[in-house]
């Protein structure tokens, strides 16, 4: 695949750009609020660009579905998907999370919050259905499932 270059725009969001097969540079700005701005760089002055169009977050997802590609979103480390009332969320654990260093059973997460940790991704390797003795470490990605409120509660339980 073509190389995609990424630039931080402080206060605005992130700009992704690549050179297309015609040799022209194209780009997308992902705004902090989720808007996507599509750009085409000028052939005459390659430092300047024309705005092609702007899409909302939802419209971008629709467009991505039509094109059959996944939506890359580097801005958020936590992703949540809603499946008819059920929420599925990825939480990356770092040193600040109090859950780090203790086992899933220690936290009694399911009995307290109702949501469960259904898998843990460690070093890009998925570990499905971790048991109560499973130790959580910084860098782990916990995949949790439950209702909206339960997932929120579990997220707080992992963090605070």
């Amino acid at each position: 695949m073509t190389e995609v270059r990424e630039t931080l725009l402080p206060g605005v969001g992130v700009r992704h750009e690549f050179t297309n097969e015609d040799g022209r540079d194209m780009g997308v700005i992902v705004h902090h609020d989720g808007r996507r701005e599509f750009l085409m760089y000028s052939a005459k002055d390659p430092d300047s660009c024309a705005q092609l169009f702007t899409l909302s977050e939802t419209d971008t997802a629709t467009l991505a579905e039509i094109l059959g590609v996944s939506v890359v979103n580097e801005v958020v480390s936590e992703v949540r998907q809603d499946l008819g009332g059920l929420a599925l969320e990825w939480i990356e654990l770092d040193d600040d999370h109090c859950a780090v260093g203790s086992s899933i059973g220690d936290g009694a997460y399911r009995s307290i919050t109702g949501a469960s940790i259904i898998a843990v991704i460690r070093n890009s390797r998925p570990i499905p259905e971790p048991g109560p003795d499973f130790q959580l470490f910084a860098g782990d990605i916990a995949v949790i499932v439950g209702t909206h409120d339960e997932v929120n509660d579990l997220r707080l339980a992992l963090c605070s």
């Binding site: 605005v12 700009r15 750009e17 780009g27 300047s48 660009c49």
Partner: peptide, 16 residues
């Protein structure tokens, strides 16, 4: 419409 321009990150960084 200059948010995507290549000089813009330099401007925004200075403002930060």
């Amino acid at each position: 419409g200059r948010l995507g321009n290549r000089e813009t990150p330099s401007i925004l960084n200075l403002l930060v």
